[in-house]
């Protein structure tokens, strides 16, 4: 059984920059526990004879050649932008620099 508690949900919400109400935290804790428990059932499958894989697709080494293609015109670039200032996107101030 998964023992997801509300502090985990709060933390994940923080990482995703989502603000949740108390009621939402309660609700999502219960819902996410169900999801985790379902995924947990996979652990019971014996995979010792199965080679590890990072993909379910039967192909690898898909690549493109190093060729420059035209980029978007500016009006397309900013079509759905939440904020535009000249030819820049304008966003909320970020206090700390990375």
């Amino acid at each position: 059984m998964s023992t997801l508690d509300r502090s985990v949900v709060e933390k994940v919400a923080g990482l995703a920059r989502i603000e949740l109400t108390d009621e939402e935290i309660e609700r999502f804790t219960a819902q996410l526990s169900v999801v985790l428990d379902a995924v947990d059932r996979l652990r019971s499958v014996d995979t010792s004879a199965i080679p590890p894989t990072a993909s379910v697709l039967p192909v690898d080494n898909v690549m493109r050649e190093d060729v420059v293609r035209p980029s978007l015109p500016l009006e397309e670039v900013f079509r759905n932008a939440p904020g535009r200032d000249g030819d820049y996107f304008r966003v909320q101030t970020v206090l700390e620099q990375r």
Partner: peptide, 21 residues
């Protein structure tokens, strides 16, 4: 600014990356 961008490097929904050989 923003003249070398496309749906992939702008992270627009549905755009798919293909690695550069």
């Amino acid at each position: 600014p923003n003249t070398l961008v496309c749906p992939v490097c702008l992270g627009l929904p549905g755009a798919l990356p293909v690695p550069n050989r």
